[in-house]
Write a protein that binds this DNA or RNA. Structure first.
Lengths: 183, 183
DNA sequence: CCCGAATGAGACATCCATGTCTCATATGGT
DNA sequence: ACCATATGAGACATGGATGTCTCATTCGGG
């Protein structure tokens, strides 16, 4: 009978990714539990979103670890990062829009850490001569978020295949839309 | 005494861009009118958002016209487009997230027209040999939206300057993060 | 100057999500 | 088998936003 909070969070994430205004009642149904039980585990919608935020941060950190950002060419690290983060892209896209509601209030410090790690990767690429230096690491990081949200949205709306997620994002982020001279 | 609906829409757009959950009361205050009057002009929050959607579409169309997408190199057209659309980026970013609430219901057909015009631009660039062909026009279009949302977010949060908006987006979208060999 | 129309202020009812509570039931360990 | 505990179902109160209404006031044109 014990409810698995992890499973509840996954179900909530899956639902809220699709319908960000879903009711606590809908979330409970999606998780296969009653609203009362949902409330026993997460005291209110706010707590639920915070828990989802913590989950998203944890998955991000895990993806960052898995991608081994310090190893090899920075562009390869970016490739690994996008690939590793893909399963969490939907959740992150939800949090990305939801976080803007929290503006003004205290932000979860976890995001700053993640921002820093990703920014450091781009900076490493710049220092190593791989990446151009006229685009700031902060912008490249923000752009990566935006492209992941767009990619998640495309997959979710059926306009793109999940298998193309990594390729679409990485190729555009690193290479851009212009044809390159043969190297 | 006559209220200018256009001015009300502008104020609503400016407010909702910053706080997407603003109340009808807050919108009315922001527009300098009473809630009753706001209600007389826009029958409910839904109607207001629809009107904002129409405004956003109109501004997009205007930017598309102003950018003369058919003239000259496609990359220059993209540059002009981003520059022309910058003033509306905040509103578009709001609608971009708000539209997901309407999923399932009928979408405003105006977006499809805009998608088509932008996609056509990217396709033209591909056929002309300017743009790489392994990224679909649909994805490039979606990516442009995502980057504009990220750019608007960066400017809004103070992490980036408005004057860099066009440069950041265009350079990343067209050129990517990798250093190019000297051409 | 006067009258009609639009506005502002506020009261009022309503709806919806939320949060809390109770009680019966089911589960799982001892 | 028994008991403690967690769950499900639903009632209930609450708060916030919305939509509607009235009435006094103000503005602007004739």
């Amino acid at each position: 009978m014990a409810v698995d909070p992890e499973h509840v969070l996954r179900a909530a994430a899956a639902l809220l990714t699709r319908k960000s205004t879903a009711t606590m009642d809908e979330v409970a149904k999606a998780a296969g539990i009653s609203r009362a039980t949902l409330h026993r585990h997460f005291a209110g919608r706010d707590a639920l979103v915070r828990a989802l935020e913590a989950l998203g941060i944890a998955e991000c950190e895990a993806a960052l670890d898995e991608a081994r950002l310090d190893e090899g060419p920075a562009s390869d690290a970016v490739r690994r990062l996008v690939g590793a983060i893909e399963p969490a892209a939907g959740l992150l896209a939800f949090l990305y829009t939801e976080n803007q509601l929290f503006e003004g209030e205290e932000q979860n410090a976890g995001w700053a850490t993640i921002d820093d790690r990703i920014s450091a990767l781009f900076r490493r690429g710049q220092l190593g001569g791989e990446f151009r230096i006229d685009l700031t690491p902060a912008w490249l990081t923000e752009a990566l978020y935006g492209l992941m949200a767009s990619g998640a949205w495309m997959v979710h709306s059926g306009k793109g295949a999940p298998k193309d997620f990594q390729h679409m994002i990485v190729e555009l982020l690193l290479g851009g839309a212009l044809r390159r001279e043969e190297s």
